[in-house]
Design a protein around this nucleic acid. Structure first.
Length: 484
RNA sequence: GAGCCGUUAGCUCAGCUAGGUAGAGCGUCAGACUUUUAAUCUGAGGGUCGCAGGUUCGAUCCCUGCACGGCUCACCA
């Protein structure tokens, strides 16, 4: 045990032995720091106001000057300086000597602006609410060790104001998405996280087992197939904003559990989903930032509409410099892929290879908000075939800052076509799965024309908080367990 | 899964190229101090140098393995 911790335990013991509680159950604070600053910060240097206020907060700095002590405390609304004068408060002053940075306290006093101009509380009473037994990271350099920051995120939140800002923003973004969709007449539903056939995307699922039913279950990789059942059931505007789980690689934009928004609306197509995507993001921007320009990593991003729109093929031509078409032979396309150094699975057809080229050569180059359209049917098993080209689907993805943010399509409502697509998928898929007969059955009862949209919420938060890694927008990213 | 890098005091970091059992700043502890805000001044304490082996008279330093982490790649519609 370090000397810092020993010294804090000693102080706690001393406090308890003096008959005080070191971990009290409650305290009714009259004021918050933010409130007090708002009400009284107009005071001029040397002025005070004889009005009693009480605040609860954590001590974040102490500056002792003999018979005078300055300390800073923080609550959720801000920081404020305490001014303690031994001559005024005697025993209470001595008690404060036993307190450390990190302790939670309540104080009573009155507002004053010091001669030096710092707005403060002249303290009359101090009570300890919770004794902190471990020293917080040093304030000047903060906490930098990424392992410690991720493992003990609460320390990160205390030490690094920017981190706290990021997660505050995240909370607001989630709230704004719900607010917007509900105001547009959508209803939020919760569909199964435990699924017997993991569907709605192609990804390796986490597997688990239900003992009573004695059946294997999978954590969902997407809610899609259940939300569509709600459309079949007669709800016309639905969404779900919650976690998905994919048992795959971890990267700056992949986390095994991540937050996804899925929206479905009856009687509209992917074009309307495009409008909706733009409206959701602009609504968030309007409520979070002053103008519609954000900087992400090294780039300035202009969110002002209209956003660029480009087909998969055009974007490949622009960013990879090769001209492709879906009418080319597989041989020709695979040769071009080889030439530009894109490797691919041998099972892929023309559409699959083109999609692979897009992913490898184009995606991360699309910085400004851009809708990419005309995705190959081969890689879109749940999307409706394009009305003008049987090789394509009515689908788009939105890219911002080189990251895929959204994916949407006119949903495939034809159960016969859906069965064929699933069968094709089962042939090429390496992941062991089976035909989702129950979903086909649901389609057979009739799904109205429907537009569907998925937004990767973590990624959207990354863009809006200038975060380079998804781990910087997920509070408690997964880590291997470490024996202390 | 692969490659590269990292792990030294509570925190942020030096030290290792020359192998001889470790340093700084902040924090902590003791003392001084009635206007500080990275307070200041004086003094003190604080380390299994990630873990385990190997080489060596001697290893924080060189070698091997392991653990954990970071970054990049691979995987991933």
């Amino acid at each position: 045990m370090s000397s810092d911790v020993i010294s804090r335990y000693k102080k706690a013991k001393q406090i308890i032995e003096s008959g005080k509680d070191a971990f009290v159950s409650k305290y009714d604070c009259k004021n918050t720091v933010g409130e007090v600053i708002e009400l009284y910060s107009h005071l001029k240097p040397g002025e005070s106001k004889q009005e009693s206020i009480s605040i609860c907060g954590r001590i974040i700095a102490i500056r002792k000057h003999g018979k005078l002590t300055f300390a800073d405390i923080r609550d959720q609304t801000g920081d404020i300086q305490l001014y303690l004068d031994k001559k005024r408060i005697g025993d209470i002053y001595d008690f404060f000597d036993l307190l450390d940075i990190g302790d939670w306290i309540s104080i009573e006093g009155y507002p004053i602006r010091t001669a030096r101009g710092e707005f403060s509380i002249m303290v009359d009473k101090v009570a300890l609410l919770t004794k902190s037994l471990r020293p917080l990271p040093e304030k000047w350099h903060g906490l930098k060790d990424k392992e410690v920051r991720y493992r003990y995120r609460y320390l990160d939140l205390i030490s690094n104001p920017k981190v706290k800002e990021t997660f505050t923003k995240r909370s607001k973004i989630i709230n704004l998405i719900r607010q917007f969709l509900i105001s547009e007449g959508f209803m939020e539903f919760e569909t199964p996280m435990l699924q017997s056939i993991p569907g709605g995307a192609t990804a390796k699922p986490f597997k688990t087992h239900h003992d009573t039913l004695d059946m294997d279950l999978f954590l969902r990789i997407a809610p899609e197939l259940y939300l569509k059942r709600l459309i079949i059931g007669g709800y016309e505007k639905v969404f779900e904003l919650n976690r998905n789980f994919r048992n795959e690689g971890i990267s700056y934009r992949h986390n095994p559990e991540f937050t996804m928004l899925e929206v479905y609306q009856a009687f509209v197509d992917y074009r309307e989903m495009m409008n909706l995507t733009q409206k959701i993001i602009l609504y968030i921007m309007d409520n979070l930032v002053e103008d519609k320009k954000i900087s992400y990593l090294e780039n300035e991003i202009d969110i002002n509409p209209p956003w660029r729109e480009m087909t998969v093929l055009n974007s490949i031509e622009k960013f990879a410099g090769v001209k492709l078409s879906f009418e080319m032979t597989r041989n020709k396309v695979s040769k071009i892929a080889d030439e530009i150094g894109v490797n691919f699975d041998e099972k892929l057809g023309v559409g699959g290879i083109i999609n692979r080229i897009f992913e490898k050569k184009v995606e991360n180059k699309i910085i400004q908000p851009t809708f990419i359209t005309d995705y190959p049917k081969e890689v879109s098993p749940l999307a409706r075939e394009h009305s003008k080209n049987p090789n394509l689907t009515e689908r788009f993805e939105l890219f911002i800052g080189g990251i895929e943010i959204a994916n949407a399509f006119s949903e495939l409502t034809d159960p016969l076509d859906q069965r064929i697509r699933f069968e094709q998928q089962l042939c090429t898929e390496e992941i062991e799965t089976e035909m989702d007969e129950d979903f086909i059955r649901a389609l057979e009862y009739g799904m109205p024309p429907t537009g569907g949209l998925g937004i990767g919420v973590d990624r959207l938060v990354m863009i809006m908080t200038d975060s380079a890694s998804i781990r910087d927008v997920i509070l408690f990213p997964h880590m291997r367990s470490k024996k202390e």
